[in-house]
Design a protein around this nucleic acid. Sequence first.
RNA 1: GGCUCCAUGGUCAAGCGGUUAAGACGUCGCCCUCUCAAGGCGAAAUCAGGGGUUCGAUUCCCCUUGGAGCUACCA
Length: 482
Amino acid sequence: MTVRTRFAPSPTGYLHLGGLRTALYTYLFAKKNGGKFILRIEDTDQEREVPGAVELIYKSLREAGLAYDEGPDVGGDYGPYIQTQRRDTYLPYAMQLVESGAAYPCFCTKEELQARRDAATARGEQWKYDKHCLSIPKDEALRRMQSGEPFVIRQNIPLTGTASFDDALYGHVEAPCDTLDDNVLIKADGLPTYNFANVIDDHLMGITHVMRGTEYLSSAPKYNLLYEAFGWQPPVYIHLSPVMKDASRKLSKRYGDPSFEDLLAQGYVRDAIINFIALLGWSPGDEREFFTLQELVEAFDLKGLSKAPAIFNTEKLVWFNHEYITRMPFEDYLAMATPWFDRVLAGKGIDYRRLAELMHTRTEVFDRVPDMVRFLAELPAYGAELYTHKKMKTDSAVALRALELARPALAALENFSEEAVKDLLMTLATENGLKTGQMMWPVRTALSGQASTPGGATEIAYLLGREESLSRIDKGIEMLRG
RNA sequence: GGCUCCAUGGUCAAGCGGUUAAGACGUCGCCCUCUCAAGGCGAAAUCAGGGGUUCGAUUCCCCUUGGAGCUACCA
């Protein structure tokens, strides 16, 4: 039996990180087992559908590198892969259940139900559909359906006994039937609910393993009742614990939590996100932590899945991102960093190649780059206290002396190269009884106006060029004299 | 409220009856150093609580507590 898995998102917005992780695990499991990974769009709730969301899902999956073997935009033998395009396939199956008694038509309106529900909660009682329409004789019900009266079809859950299913991760899960409601299978608009569509489509599409969030864990026993009523073999279920923002909140856009697209836009690299997400709720069992997608495919094993929710920790993502950036070839880094340099340095004539060399190991997330290099475009306002640094053994007096020595020497320097500047400053320091830091700290401070910079005095002097460097040193001397 | 599920440091986690309870991020020291990074070395920090079972529980069972999910003509 070839393994077939599916990722089945609803087109209600961007692909959030929990969804991305589900897609990733689903993909990994299929590929690990030489199977097929399928994309199915679950758009049966027309009201919640967000325009463009389907395209966004395609885009995100493509960017994540999770290529699906079958899906709406790639085709396949089990299509269509969008549920609204399959709308006619569901009712006959539902009628089959009505015939066997596992389901029944219901003519109660939403308003009536809401009123009864409200009344029940007002009395402090539990509301559950009372099988009111189950008592309607079948021929009468059929007549009313054919006459055009609005109806839904409900699952007829037994009043006694238990319903259960087996999960590859959570084991045997069972629930008392009397706590289960007669869910709607087919809505008044003719479309199926998730409760029905997932069963029909998973079966029709030959899905062998269903991986999805734990929000379906407690309703899975009901789905199994459906499989039994049809006489179908249920798939292997693997429910996945959620990705959390903190101990009690799920990751969600509503609270400003980033989507996959957001992270990419912020300057996180794709492979770092995937690597990090993979390890959020899954462990390879050994101490490896760097994985390419292909390595994940090889290492993936259901045994490593965690049953407890995992908190999305940005610190670690940042670390992964920094590692991936540091390890990427320099030319790739330069290409990726250039647009970020441009945001603040465009037209300034800065040597991007040299700047990129300095920034390569210092870049954690690309969106932090502009702030790190902005001082090259314009000298920030700073105070004289910056010249005092205990460890460097400098204070205003030492700094002034260092700058006054450096200024004419730099002005007279023949070739204003980084190496030449360095040699000059070093010898200038020793000749005048200054420690290296006592020369370098003041110069770097004057050039940058910052306590820390990517690169030291000599690198910055080179990037700035002679004219700008001298001008900034003059400002420093002026400040220290004043 | 009912039902279902979960529980090892701040975070991700290994462990699957006997261990000095791995490792990583983060944090804090020290080294290196023209700042900051990077790099090297080191440190602190975890089995939610209570009962069992057992010669022996982080590990198995029960309860409590805490958290999550479901309880829609949403998925």
